[in-house]
Design a protein around this nucleic acid. Structure first.
Lengths: 100, 100
DNA sequence: GCCATATATTGACATATAGCTATTATCATA
DNA sequence: TATGATAATAGCTATATGTCAATATATGGC
């Protein structure tokens, strides 16, 4: 461990980081953003991809919308979600890197 | 975003990752592991470093012990804590990297 | 054993979260 | 406008979480 490189995380960043990873600290939400990482997806696509009830998917998406992790846009009768918080990709890649 | 590199996170890893980042998804716990990242620290050192009551620090440490994120060893009348989950460093560095 | 210091645990309480069912909104199209 | 598909929300129960005050448990020195 290279301690010399450990600089303190600034309070505001730390606070936002805690908020983001708190949201991602749930298996289903983590799966949802993993799906969204590949590009926009509708609620039903997400639902199929991870196999949980529509209402639950919507609830998780609503929470993640609430802290600006994902955003939605209507497309006809669909609503397409996408990740808008760049740190999410960092976190997912970080998890992948641990998978040695 | 290089989508070609996005490989799926394995279920077991994803589940453990969710557990870890759930624990880190709290500002005080994030501060605690940030302190511990620099090396072992006693409860009172942590308490001083981040400025919250001793009982709260102990409670957070107990929860993180519970999911094998930190470990403790007694040293005289002190108890020294350290990070034992390597992913924690990855996550902290990931947060730092976002701090552009 | 007694005292001071360091840490852990407990109980109480408020709030947050998760998941379920049912219902409601929104849109496209017949 | 009626209908089917898609998505969001409401109401509910159960459980988890966060915090505090108080108490309990080490440990070391006298």
């Amino acid at each position: 461990m290279k301690r010399a490189l450990l600089r303190r995380i600034e309070p505001v960043l730390l606070s936002r980081a805690a908020e983001i990873i708190k949201m991602l600290g749930h298996p289903e939400r983590l799966k949802i953003v993993e799906v969204l990482e590949r590009g926009e997806a509708t609620v039903s696509e997400i639902q199929e991809a991870i196999g949980i009830p529509q209402a639950i998917v919507s609830q998780h998406l609503a929470r993640m919308r609430g802290c600006n992790i994902v955003a939605a846009r209507r497309d006809g009768s669909y609503v397409r979600y996408r990740v808008i918080e760049p740190k999410v990709h960092h976190v997912l890649n970080c998890i992948r890197e641990c998978d040695a």
